[in-house]
């Protein structure tokens, strides 16, 4: 298969298939799984922008998602803002949060980036827990207003509206990521990852690229968070926990860091896999163990992600794949 066919035709075929899914999946549960998978796909592919493409050891990506969740929840429920606007505002607040955390990240190296981004997530979670009168504290917020378009309520038709809205969001986010990655700016990100000193010598500001990439990766993650809150009508501090973090991380790893479509494919596959495992009696907890084992196995045998293996097998006309996992400083 030629690269053009792979880069354009294959994604379009997948998109067409996803557009047709609601025709065959008429029950709201299957559609619900797809919607959640789309949101995870947005989280994972945007995380990959900072982690995989630029090599920023960002372990606070789910914080941007959580900021989005609570922005939409507070705006729509407490302040009575239209849910559509609340979702869009979530992208803005998440980007602002990313800008805040980017200040120390731009100056730090190696393990300290991991620690400070991780701690930032804990900071936001503690803020949410301590401001119980605004955020609902540990219990979270419920009965958040749902989406409407004119007179049409999105609760109708077995989540058909939500399905297409989430898919639309995923498509826009993916186009945005492709545009960023293929732009000169995207190439400079790879330079920062693979040859920091050389990039700096060529006049690329390492700190500025890091700040920019964190803010860009937060926009759609925050919007996905806002959508998540409006769709589930719940906001809970669980989004900041280790569980969500490791699930999203496994999607990035299994899909392949440094690709755009890999984490999206992995998000779809893993959401259905974990959901199927949860249905088997006795595996409700064990499925997280299986995901963790899968992560370890992928790091051991295919550090480029499973998509990396398929690329090596099928598409020999491609250049050797870029270094698999991101690097950050000496």
């Amino acid at each position: 298969m030629k690269p053009a066919a792979r880069n354009i035709v294959l994604p379009l075929v997948c998109l067409a298939a996803l557009l047709l899914v609601p025709v065959f999946a008429i029950d709201s549960y299957t559609r619900h799984l797809f919607i959640i998978a789309f949101l995870y796909a947005i989280i994972a592919s945007n995380w990959n922008l900072s982690l995989g493409h630029c090599g920023v050891f960002n372990f606070g990506h789910l914080t941007f998602f959580g900021v989005g969740v609570y922005t939409a929840a507070i705006l729509a429920k407490t302040l009575g803002v239209n849910p559509w606007i609340a979702i869009l505002a979530s992208g803005a607040t998440a980007a602002a949060a990313a800008f805040l955390i980017a200040a120390p990240v731009a100056r730090l190296k190696g393990i300290y980036v991991v620690l400070v981004t991780f701690a930032f997530g804990q900071l936001v979670m503690q803020l949410v827990l301590s401001q119980a009168q605004i955020t609902g504290g540990a219990e979270g917020m419920v009965r958040i207003p749902y989406l409407r378009l004119g007179d049409y309520s999105f609760l109708k038709d077995y989540k058909l509206g939500y399905y297409y809205a989430a898919l639309f969001l995923l498509v826009v986010s993916t186009l945005f990521l492709l545009a960023v990655v293929r732009s000169p700016f995207g190439k400079s990100l790879k330079a920062v990852r693979d040859a920091e000193e050389y990039a700096a010598a060529r006049g690329i500001s390492i700190s500025r690229q890091r700040v920019t990439v964190l803010v860009l990766s937060a926009i759609f993650t925050g919007i996905a968070g806002g959508f998540y809150a409006i769709y589930l009508r719940v906001a809970s501090p669980d989004v900041f926990g280790f569980g969500t973090l490791s699930l999203a991380l496994s999607m990035v790893l299994i899909g392949g860091t440094g690709t755009v479509y890999g984490p999206i494919a992995a998000a779809l596959a893993l959401t259905f896999a974990t959901e199927a495992l949860a249905g088997i009696r006795g595996l409700e907890e064990a499925r997280f163990i299986l995901i963790a084992l899968a992560m370890i196995l992928v790091l051991r045998i295919a550090p480029g992600g499973l998509l990396g293996i398929i690329e090596k097998l099928d598409f020999r006309d491609r250049k050797p794949a870029a270094p698999a996992v991101a690097r950050n400083g000496p």
Binding site: V114, F242, M295, I296, L299, R327
Partner: peptide
Amino acid sequence: LLITVMTTLAAMII
């Protein structure tokens, strides 16, 4: 550094 952060994170989950 990055890989072991992820593998030990996985160990924590397990």
